[in-house]
Amino acid sequence: MFFDFHIHGNHELAIEAETMGYCGVSLVVNSQDCNDNSGIIKNLRKATNHLPDDNKFIINAGVEIHARNPEDLKKKVKKFRKKADVILVHGGDLKINRAATEDPRIDILSHPYRSRYDSGINHVLSVKAAENSVAVEINLKYLLLTRSNQRHRVLNQFQQIVKLHRKYKFPMIINSDASSIYDLRNPNDVIALASCFGMTNDEASRALSTAPREIMDRNKIRDETILSGVRLIK
């Protein structure tokens, strides 16, 4: 059961992902595009209405948080955590990367290496990500859109993430960051591509299946706990 938890699109892109062999996706919007009255997140949830009644394909509503600083990040996580199924953080800035790995309410730290020469993750952040079950993303779009003469840098960044994952055991997830059908990749092709940056087939399979399932299971427990608390208050 493979999942892609970083897709910027609508139900049509989700259906295309299903035809490629995925069992579920997260349709993601940027936090700048959301406000309390926008209804964007509710519209993402309605994407399941376009599926046949007997279809078990899973569509999650996700928000990618763009934060100016760690304090802004905390405020936005608080704002969106109860509204979204999956919370991603737009990484790259080292302070944001650290704040994201320290917050158990966050599901995915997206491209922590963005606009950097290093991986954006060190041993301290690796320990925090493992403790708080924050998945570190291998972002395929970041690799594929990088100029060919710079791809060796991205591959090296991915290799460093893989090495740290093996040592510190934080969750690692592979996502397409797709915004069109041309950005989507068949899961088997993704697994084959992952070997280029040192991942084994088993590691790539877990990054496409186990990591996203654990995010869904953890958030289900969180939601049930919140609902139980509400009932007790009432």
Rank of each mutant, 00 (worst) to 15 (best):
L208T: 01
N186F: 00
L88S: 07
Y113E: 12
A100V: 09
L73E: 06
I121V: 15
T101R: 03
N139I: 01
N97E: 04
S126Q: 08
M20Y: 11
N55Y: 08
V127I: 15
V63A: 08
L109N: 07
Y113A: 10
S110A: 15
K167L: 13
Q159V: 02
H8I: 08
E71P: 04
M216L: 12
N201E: 13
K83S: 10
L155H: 07
F2Q: 02
N49R: 13
N30M: 00
D183H: 11
R185T: 07
N55C: 15
I40Y: 11
P212Y: 02
A47H: 08
F2L: 03
S180D: 12
V86C: 07
I181M: 12
N156L: 10
V136T: 07
G62Y: 02
L140W: 02
I65Y: 00
K75R: 13
F5E: 03
M20W: 04
R45L: 09
L164C: 06
N49F: 13
M1L: 12
D177K: 00
E18I: 01
N60Y: 14
H66M: 06
F80I: 07
K79C: 12
L155F: 06
A14E: 02
D33H: 13
F170N: 00
V77K: 03
L51H: 03
K74T: 14
L140G: 02
Q32I: 12
E16H: 14
A207P: 04
D85G: 03
K83L: 15
I121A: 04
N188A: 06
N60E: 14
S209Q: 09
S119R: 05
K95G: 06
I65H: 01
A194Q: 03
D217V: 13
S115N: 15
K234H: 10
R116P: 00
K82T: 11
R45F: 11
I15T: 05
I15H: 08
P104T: 11
I15V: 14
G91R: 00
V136L: 09
P52L: 07
N122M: 05
I106W: 01
L143P: 00
D183E: 08
F5C: 05
I181E: 13
E224C: 06
S179T: 06
E137Y: 02
S179D: 10
R98Y: 08
V86E: 03
T48P: 08
R114L: 12
S148W: 11
A211Y: 00
R231M: 11
I41P: 00
N69L: 09
L155V: 03
L143F: 14
H152N: 14
N201F: 08
Q157R: 08
N60I: 12
L51F: 10
L143V: 05
